[in-house]
Design a binder for these strands. Sequence first.
DNA 1: GTCGGGATCCTCT
DNA 2: GAGGATCCCGACA
Length: 206
Amino acid sequence: MTVAAAREPVAGPRRITDRAWFDRPALAVAQDLLGALLVHDSAEGRVAGRIVEVEAYQGPEDLAAHSSRGRTERNAVMFGDPGHLYVYLVYGLHHCANVVCGPGLKPEAVLLRAVEVIEGLGLARARRGAVPDERLAAGPGNLGAAFGFDRGHNGLDLVRGRAWIAAGERSARFERSPRVGVAYAGEWAAVPLRFSIVDDPFRSRR
DNA sequence: GTCGGGATCCTCT
DNA sequence: GAGGATCCCGACA
């Protein structure tokens, strides 16, 4: 896929309707999400884009994962069926969106960290204010704002709901690095579970 | 009921 | 590079 083709408006993207696609370990889902399309249809319109950066959170043993401290009211969605959206508020300001995966009911998830917005640019710009397009959805908080996600979207079904994933052409060139902001997680903080497309200008900073 | 801290981001120095 | 914004969650008393 050329860069020019990647920036064409989304014309009939094929939604992932097979829940088994999500019913896999976060490690596998995270890599397949790179290059895939994230779409959110709201009353205001559609925003869609190509996923360029994610982080995998691996079930209850991963001390960086919310599920590591057991099921709570906040993280209950992580313990439910794969293929749902887990949205939570961080630092009292930003909404982070995760794709709940499996296998089975294993509470794993993939944090969506950066997207290249390719449809609904006007709406995304209106939600984000005056920032360069490269930063519209760079970073999980910015991504949540650009796509209009808030806690009302927590638990949304990606297979049947108004937000969904369309499989894209998986990038052959991606890199792994440690996750951001999880220094409290001991040895898990150093595990390279962050995946991003090499040299993509739409990735988050750092 | 109280309190500490957080899967962030932006501005200012 | 440092610090502030802002509020929900969860632990603990």
